[in-house]
């Protein structure tokens, strides 16, 4: 346990030194706040551009608040996810170059606490950023467009956090065998593939964690999705990834790369 805290503090310090605690939440907050403002002014902006016949312009209206929040989530799944994964890509792979691995690896028992600490640090950043961005978006939406209900909003947020979390966790095992950027792109690619598969074959992949983002959107727009299987499998997925990362690190000691 004490090993965990040592590594956790080290991860936190490193994140603070590279300003991650400022810029990642700031990006999420910006994405979240800009979306409702943009949707709110979109009809006006289109009108002012003047190229649209008035009949067509009348069709463009401000969507209901739930849809605006859902579109914020889809912003988070492109730019937000990219930012999270890219900012996490060097947590394991970076240990090669800065030498922590050499200190830690001779004592195998300390690899698992190190991994868990890295994971916990990543999750803290993820949750803080997402909650800030989501709350900002919800606040702007409710001020500009209309009130949102708490229940679906919180449910959707929880499922969405699970979705972001399992994808970001993929970086740990991949980072143990690959360089940082390669790990990041494979993680993003496999996440995209799983998510697309889950939406193509929904009946076969009930349990797939790739469904979580769709479930979050469905939660918002008024469905009552049965979502325990994907949520549970996302948690299992994260545990497996962390353990796999530990085993891979043990088997393939991190050699300093040129």
């Amino acid at each position: 346990m004490s090993m965990f805290w040592i590594h956790f503090k080290k991860e936190m310090l490193e994140a603070a030194r590279s300003y991650k605690w400022i810029w990642v939440p700031a990006v999420f907050l910006l994405l979240g706040v800009m979306q409702p403002v943009m949707m709110y002014y979109l009809p006006d902006i289109l009108m002012m551009s003047g190229d649209i016949p008035p009949e067509a312009a009348a069709l463009i209206t401000v969507p209901p608040p739930e849809e605006i929040l859902a579109s914020t989530l889809s912003q988070f799944s492109t730019i937000g996810l990219l930012v999270l994964v890219l900012s996490a890509m060097n947590t394991v792979a970076g240990e090669r170059s800065n030498g922590t691995a050499e200190l830690v690896l001779p004592r195998i028992s300390s690899v698992l606490p190190m991994m868990i600490a890295k994971w916990a640090a990543m999750m803290s950043l993820l949750i803080l950023s997402f909650v800030l961005g989501y709350a900002g978006s919800a606040y702007y939406t409710s001020q500009l467009i209309g009130t949102l209900e708490w229940g679906p909003m919180l449910g959707a947020g929880a499922f969405y956090i699970a979705w972001l979390a399992w994808i970001v966790t993929l970086v740990l095992p991949l980072g143990a065998v690959l360089r940082g950027p390669a790990a990041a792109f494979i993680a993003l690619g496999s996440a995209a593939a799983l998510t697309m598969l889950a939406s193509l074959l929904p009946s076969h992949l009930q349990w797939s964690p790739g469904r979580l983002s769709a479930i979050a959107t469905e939660c918002l727009t008024g469905g009552d999705p049965s979502a325990w299987a994907p949520a549970v499998s996302a948690v299992c997925f994260m545990a497996l990834s962390t353990i796999a990362a530990t085993l891979l690190l043990k088997r393939r000691p991190l050699l300093p790369q040129a």
Binding site: I22, W23, A26, V27, L30, V33, M34, V37
Partner: peptide, 20 residues
């Protein structure tokens, strides 16, 4: 009142990057 928080956030981001 809607726009200035966005500008302020962008400024925070840019200033952090420049300081770093």
């Amino acid at each position: 009142g809607l726009i200035w928080p966005i500008i302020a956030l962008q400024a925070v981001l840019a200033v952090t990057a420049l300081v770093s």
